[in-house]
Write a protein that binds this DNA or RNA. Structure first.
Lengths: 250, 250
DNA sequence: AAGTGTACATATACGTCGTAAACGTATGGT
DNA sequence: ACCATACGTTTACGACGTATATGTACACTT
């Protein structure tokens, strides 16, 4: 210990701190912050899966005791919500990286595709998109999540839908994107070391007599659906839930 | 407690036993069995939520030590998979309760509706439908799950699709059903004791300037989508993914 | 320069968790 | 009468979430 603080570390009110620089860190690598905590947790989950995430482990990754995290996340559940927030923040960055589409329909496609990309980039976090939404009520969701909802609702309104129809379409769009993403993340491979496809999938475990279609379909099923399937379904749903936008070829 | 064994249950030495009743239960309520374990776990989760489920707690509900469960489920994960299995088993019971539809499309609707009902009947278990599928590879899923997949694939094949198109449509159907169900299970109410709808939803927590559409839509959003929305979306997707079945009016 | 409040991180402790390993004990077959 | 087997218990260990109490170093007074 006893790495002493640098007197040039800056005034606390101004909040100045150089990255990798120690200020009031008791001799550690740098001050903690919500951002740093969430980034570390995300990294840990990406690397080792959700079950590896614990307060103690996350603290250790930061060179800090577990209890120190409680200043930046009220508890473990809040940490999980933080991961969801981190994902939606990445989504917003992705959306900001390319230009907004002028057409509402194209813009919905752009959002869906970006969501798909972000979710597949963090497969271990994606299940939280389903589970945490069931645990935390709308008004308490991270702001980044609410902004995503707002974007979609606004686009549908712009398409000319009234309140009721907007909500219907919203349900369709969000449900579809979530379901499709989760579907593409489903585990298929049983034995990764096996070169032979059928063995890789563990098809010998499935009773052939009872499950002929499934066994036949499994290899095709094992290839991810890709964003094309997502877009196709989205179009199908929009055709139905946004009247007057005729089937596709317009 | 401490209900002792019935002396009429059979003399231990002679081994005489009533039909359907086994001895060897150490003076407890009855032998353990996988069915009994899963039923108890399901009941516990329905009553107190997923986080209340632990090996010890489940054992206690059965009047048994936690380790006793390991004979019927290899570990906690296997217990969770058992819950998924239990839900799909209920689905099969529901499907068996009414007649199979002659038309493949109607039958898909029947399956979707039954899935929706079962999931909403066990809201605390439903998230497992998303998460466990990511953890356990296709070939290792409970048989009831695989049979569900088989049913859907067979119906789509019957609709005249080739292998590739079948899988596309399968992805669409299952993704949609899952996403829609999870969407309908999302928590909306923030303060259940509050009579005023806006306060109930906690809308005052949401920045009005930044989220106008969401605030306006929230009350409508709070009403569940109902099976009608599920059916509408399903039709939309089938129209797209099963060619030659034209929009609706056939 | 000394003192003080506050923000931040640690230390300690408690109860619960999943589960490995070893151990009874009753049962059914011989 | 004996034994193998099936079934449940006991004991133990390390990891977990987190309440509470305890430092410790900074910025701001005075």
């Amino acid at each position: 210990m006893a790495i002493k603080k640098d007197p040039a570390a800056g005034t606390p009110a101004s909040g100045r701190r150089a990255p990798g620089r120690r200020a009031g860190d008791h001799g550690r690598y740098g001050r903690l912050s919500r951002e740093r905590v969430l980034a570390t947790a995300l990294e840990l989950v990406d690397r080792e899966g959700l079950s590896a995430l614990s307060m103690r482990r996350t603290g250790a990754e930061l060179g800090v005791e577990a209890m120190a995290l409680y200043r930046y996340a009220a508890g473990k559940d809040a940490l999980l919500d933080g991961l969801v927030e981190a994902l939606y923040t990445q989504l917003e960055e992705q959306l900001a990286a390319s230009a907004e589409a002028p057409d509402w329909r194209d813009e919905l496609h752009r959002i869906a595709a970006a969501t798909y990309r972000v979710a597949l980039d963090h497969p271990h976090v994606a299940p939280l998109l389903a589970t945490r939404m069931l645990a935390v009520p709308l008004a308490r969701r991270p702001l980044a999540v609410l902004r995503d909802h707002e974007r979609i609702l606004a686009l549908l309104k712009r398409a000319g839908l009234d309140e009721e129809a907007t909500v219907m379409a919203f349900r369709a769009v969000t449900g579809w994107v979530l379901g499709y993403v989760l579907g593409d993340l489903r585990a298929m491979v049983d034995n990764p070391d096996e070169p032979e496809p059928a063995f890789r999938l563990g098809l010998h475990r499935m009773p052939a007599r009872e499950l002929p279609c499934l066994r036949a379909a499994a290899p095709t099923l094992a290839r991810p659906g890709a964003p094309e399937g997502l877009a196709a379904g989205l179009d199908a749903l929009l055709d139905r839930f946004v009247p007057g936008t005729g089937p596709a070829t317009g």
